[in-house]
Amino acid sequence: MASNPQWRLHQPRALLAERLFVAGAWIAGSMGFLLPVAIIGYLLVNGIGVLSWEFISAPPRGYPLGLHGGILPAIQGSLAVTMVALGVAFPLAVASAIYLAEYAEHPRFVAIMQFLAECLAAVPALLFGVLGYGLLVVQFGLGISALAGGLTLAMMMYPVILIGSHAALQSVDRSLRESALAMGVSRAYVIRRALLPRAWPGIIAATVLAGSHAVGSAVPVLFTAAVVQTRSAPSLDSPVMTLPTHLFYLVSEAVSFEHAYGTAFVLLVCLLFANTCALVLRRRLRMRGE
């Protein structure tokens, strides 16, 4: 069959542009895949060799400190600070979300509060650290302590959990809430028995994401809770070591890259695990929604 020129496209430049576009987009797409894989892979491969039982179960030793030994106090400190932060931020944020989703009467009020929460979520970690240092550490006299660090992180986590929980509560079917209310029970009862069980996965996912963000965040803790070395078990009123600040110390003072790899490994594995859980939860929620 003789091919008729009518059935070909006669735009060499447009076809070239199309080809360049497709090639460019595929390159960008593969970068989006390769970049995280390369970074994570590089850190994990270099970090796993450092890992030993001693590394996660012993305090740092040697001179300069951290050259030998392990990172146990940093793990404990990170846990302590995060627990304090979660303990404060979680109830506050979930209660706030419940107010916004269930009790608030004026849509305008809800919109303004949402707007403020989004602004708060956009404030960089450094400013929370600055506030925590100036107000909590210096002015309230909490000193550099797990409590001050935890409260600072709590402020940082609050808007994230609030926004996520509010979305989760709102995604619960309206008819469920109305038919429950139609039974003549109180709102509190409906919230407890009908809404929270439905919204739970979304709230937990938001909390885990906020928590893992806080665990990895070094700046706010740097001013408010962290020291280079502690030997005692963490307590509220004493300074602690945390994983990210320890990593920062090891790198910025060029103490030990080997231990830095190990610390980064532990930090990354914890965060990846937490984030994966949150993502799976969220995905399951989304599927149930459909």
Binding site: G29, G32, F33, L35, P36, V37, I39, I40, Y42, L43, N46, L209, S212, H213, V215, G216, S217, A218, P244, T245, L247, F248, V251, F257, A260, A264, L267, L268, L271, L272, N275, L279
Partner: peptide
């Protein structure tokens, strides 16, 4: 595949990025 990859990238703390850049 790509979307979880980007979420992982967004979840890496900045101190780890700093360390990665350093090495």
């Amino acid at each position: 595949v790509l979307q979880p990859c980007l979420e992982v990238l967004a979840g890496i703390p900045s101190v780890v990025y700093g360390f990665f850049g350093f090495v």
